[in-house]
Structures are given as structure tokens and as C-alpha cells.
Design a binder for these strands. Structure first.
Lengths: 183, 183
DNA sequence: TTGAATCTTCAAAATTTCTTGAAAGATCAA
DNA sequence: TTGATCTTTCAAGAAATTTTGAAGATTCAA
């Protein structure tokens, strides 16, 4: 076994801070840490590199990378002549935000709205004097429906403004991103 | 011990759905359930009532009510001639959202921004060739600062639009909420 | 094929979070 | 005061989540 090479303390501190953000959004802290180490490093890293830097087990790294790729925040990179897989951070976080809202939050909103609607039906069928409850439940259903529409609209729109926001993370070298001289 | 009187299944279903929403926002599911039972019921309920309806222990109800009051989503009500305390749901959820953003999210944002800044300093002092990392870290700091400013601005503004949103929960009776006669 | 290097999976262990229930603390009528 | 009723606190237990580590799968050079 080789000597472990943990990252510079500054990198670990930053990784932990980003981990807290991502944890607040319902992911495991480790995902944020791994992404940060990849983001701060110039060039791709292997799973083993990441494990060393963050002192994580191979299994934990593998699972973190799998999930990060599922959310499109990390991409797999092929390096010629290398058996191992390498990874690098996706800087366009808008991709991730859109995906999470589209898959996770939309799913939540739909489930909640459906259950509230069903509760409304159940109450209506139960007959007994529950007029007040029914009206309140209607209100809840309205809010759920509104939230769902907001989410749908959010997904529909290209969210140009948000691209600006997360665009702040692109590489410092400032390579042209769109219509600047060829590629 | 008296026979338990759980809520109507429809109410429990709705309570659970709201519980999921609140859980997604980082609170315990029980808080959402308690709020929903209070919201759907016409009039105030005692802690014992809530425990019966949701089949929760007295301790759990007490803790849930304490936290709900801390976030201003439930208010204590005094009923003449009653020894027990009663509670009812606060319908203006904007109060809660503002409080959570102001206390919890602002705190998170500040902590993250500070740690990223410190990481930047550490990297700068370390001397060695970490130019690329420093630049990337600067980007992260910028995003954190931006997020913090957005949160501050959010808190500053009265958020009139959001009141409209959450205003949808006010009592169906549609009594004027501001210039109510007397009282 | 074989074997070395690497990756993934998953059951068990560790950790974190939540709930319970009983004891202590309040409150109030008598 | 006393006793009855109700609330809060908190340690212990239960439950849920996360991490580990090792077995098995995969990949590729030889």
C-alpha cells in the first residue's frame, strides 16, 4: 500500500464547505467533496486519486462518482494509454439544477398534489359534515397545483438568467463558449 | 387510558403529503403532519388532541409544537376556562419562509463563503504552484458571494409576490384580512 | 486464456437522526 | 398547600442513513 496523499488542507476545507451546500440540498456531503476536488484540480483524476485525496474508501468513491454522473455534474474522461477511468467536474451547474428540479422536485410535487387530491375525494365521499376541512384541503391542492406549474414552467424555460449565474464557474482561461471564433 | 381517535384517513393522507414537502426542506416530517392537522381543523386543538389524531407520543407532539412555533407556523391560543394550551396553524407561510431563509440559509451561505475565502488565503500563503486551483477557488468564492447577496436581497424585499402565493392558504370565509372591523 | 489492475456491488458495521416514555416541572382549582 | 392535569425535557432505544471492506465483475495486455 502506498502512502496516502490527502489534498492540500485548503482544498479539503473548500470541499467540505461545498459539501455542506450540497447536503442542504438533500445529497450526501461526499458528493460535494468529490465534485470540489475534481473542480479545483487542473485536469482529470482517477477514482483512486480521489480516494487518496479525500481519504475515502474505494467503494465510497465509486458510489459518489456514479451518482455525480447520474446528475451530470461529473463526466467520465478517457485518457489514451490509461487503463483506469478518469473524471472531471462539469462546470455548467445549470445542467445539474435543471435535472434535479426536473426529476426530483417535479416528482415530489406531483406525488404531493396527487395525494392531496385523493384526500379531497376521500373527504367528499365520507359524507359527514366536513365542509370546513374540505375547503381548506382545496386550498392546499391549489397551492400544490401552483407549485407544480411553477416547476414545469421553470423547466420549460431555458433559464438564461441562471446560466449566467452558474456560468461564473467556467474555466478562468476564458475560452469562447459560443459564437466566438471557431471551437 | 381513553380510546385513541385518529384523524380521518383523508386528513392523515394529506398530512403525510405535506410532511414530505417539509421534510424535503430539511425539517422533520412530523412538523408537517402536525401543521396540517391544525390547518385542516376548524378551530384550535390541544397537544393531546394532536397526539391522538396523529398517534404521536406526548413528547413528540410537544417538541413538534415547540419547533413549529419557533418558525412561526403555529401559534398558541388561549381559550377562556381551559387549563390546557391550544394551538392553531399560521396561514401566512411567508412568515415561515422568510424566517427560514433569514436564519438558516443565510447562516449556511455565510459559513460557506467564509470557509471558501479562508481556503483561498491558505492556498495563497502555501506559495507552491497552485495558480490554477487559486483561480478556480476564486470562482467558487464569487458564486458564494453572489448567493449571499441574493439571499440578503430576498430578505430585504417585502416579497409581495410571494405573499400572493402563500396567501392562497387563508381561510375560505374570505374575511378581509387587514381592515377588519374592530378587534 | 491468464493474471494484474481497477471498478462495482452489497451486506454488515458505524453513524446520525428520530421517537418514545418516564420523570421532573408547571399550572390551577380546591 | 395539595392533588389532579397537562407540558417539557432528555436519556435510552429504535429507525434510518451512510460508510466500509471484501468478494465478485470487468478490462486489458500479454
Amino acid at each position: 500500500m502506498t502512502t496516502p496523499h490527502p489534498s492540500h488542507p485548503a482544498v479539503l476545507l473548500a470541499a467540505d464547505a461545498v459539501g455542506d451546500v450540497i447536503e442542504y440540498w438533500g445529497f450526501r456531503k461526499a458528493l460535494g467533496r468529490v465534485w470540489t476536488v475534481l473542480y479545483l484540480w487542473d485536469g482529470p483524476l482517477s477514482a483512486g486519486d480521489i480516494g487518496e485525496r479525500l481519504q475515502m474508501s474505494a467503494g465510497a468513491v465509486s458510489m459518489a462518482l456514479t451518482e455525480l454522473q447520474r446528475w451530470a455534474v461529473v463526466k467520465r474522461v478517457w485518457l489514451p494509454g490509461e487503463r483506469r477511468e478518469f473524471f472531471e467536474a462539469e462546470v455548467d451547474l445549470w445542467k445539474m439544477i435543471a435535472k434535479v428540479i426536473s426529476e426530483r422536485e417535479r416528482y415530489l410535487a406531483r406525488g404531493v398534489r396527487e395525494r392531496l387530491e385523493q384526500a379531497g375525494k376521500m373527504l367528499a365521499e365520507s359524507g359527514s359534515r366536513v365542509k370546513g376541512q374540505q375547503e381548506k384541503l382545496e386550498k392546499l391542492v391549489s397551492v400544490a397545483q401552483l407549485a407544480e406549474r411553477v416547476i414545469e414552467a421553470f423547466i420549460q424555460s431555458r433559464m438564461a438568467d441562471f446560466s449566467t449565474f452558474t456560468g461564473a464557474l467556467v474555466e478562468p482561461e476564458g475560452r469562447p463558449s459560443k459564437a466566438r471564433r471557431g471551437r
